[in-house]
Write a protein that binds this DNA or RNA. Structure first.
Lengths: 130, 130
DNA sequence: TCTTGAGACGTACAAATGTACGTGAGCCTA
DNA sequence: TAGGCTCACGTACATTTGTACGTCTCAAGA
């Protein structure tokens, strides 16, 4: 199915902003990014262009301003990216990653609780598969 | 401190195998990889070389065979990579990633159980920190 | 009307990445 | 000891990524 080329780090950074602020022109994305990054304006522009080429955004002119819109859900990209990471770094197993996240990055008691609830829930309506 | 260049996707795949099987020659890494990947033998070789250049592995000749050994713990690379991902994709929060992993990728009952045990344990001796 | 600033767009280019060929040396076997 | 196999290793090369310069156009103010 949707087998668009995956996003590079820089592209992802720009894409995230697009998801965050919705449809936006280069300037807006650039401004938003400049809090955390010091990418050049034209660099952002290039990324936006490439995002469109790769199928992660679409754009149209509004007057003489080109407005970019993220295409598809962030969830899709997240899934693809995480899957990729899990495959490459953990040989396809998610548990080690989860374990790493919990052990290494830590979680608040509240989060732990939340997670447990999730697991209970999941355990219930999970029945067969694998 | 250890500011070695980060690993590319392909390099990471090879690095993982090195961590997994320990010191190994190109052939072994290649064989191991061929279960999941169809990288060329010489491609693996190149990655191994680059891994060494970047400081993620060391090697020495054993007879006429070059044996590579991972340098440093996988944990370090994993941490860097995962942190990066979490920052970029989830604004620094791990829970959403964990949730994603569980919900989207699924887990076997056994894994769920394992995870719960881990959480219990973690809940207990978790006391301070953050 | 002339100037200027904002922005689009084409283009460039070095570095990193993915991929692999070819050559030459050591080793095993007929 | 000649042939073939296995490796190491140098090298190559297309693609992707990171980064940004110039140029052209439009629109608004002087």
């Amino acid at each position: 199915m949707s087998s668009r080329p995956s996003l590079s780090k820089g592209e992802m950074e720009v894409a995230r902003v697009l998801w965050e602020i919705g449809a936006a022109g280069v300037r807006e994305v650039f401004e938003t990014l400049s809090n955390t990054s010091d990418m050049d304006y034209t660099t952002v522009q290039t990324y936006l262009r490439r995002l469109e080429t790769k199928g992660y955004a679409s754009s149209k002119l509004k007057g003489r301003l080109r407005i970019y819109t993220a295409k598809g859900r962030p969830g899709t990209v997240i899934r693809e990216t995480v899957n990729d990471l899990v495959d490459r770094l953990f040989g396809g197993q998610s548990l080690p990653l989860v374990r790493h996240l919990i052990e290494d990055r830590g979680m608040s008691p509240k989060e732990i609780h939340e997670l447990k609830v999730l697991l209970d829930q999941y355990e219930d309506d999970d029945s067969c598969d694998d």
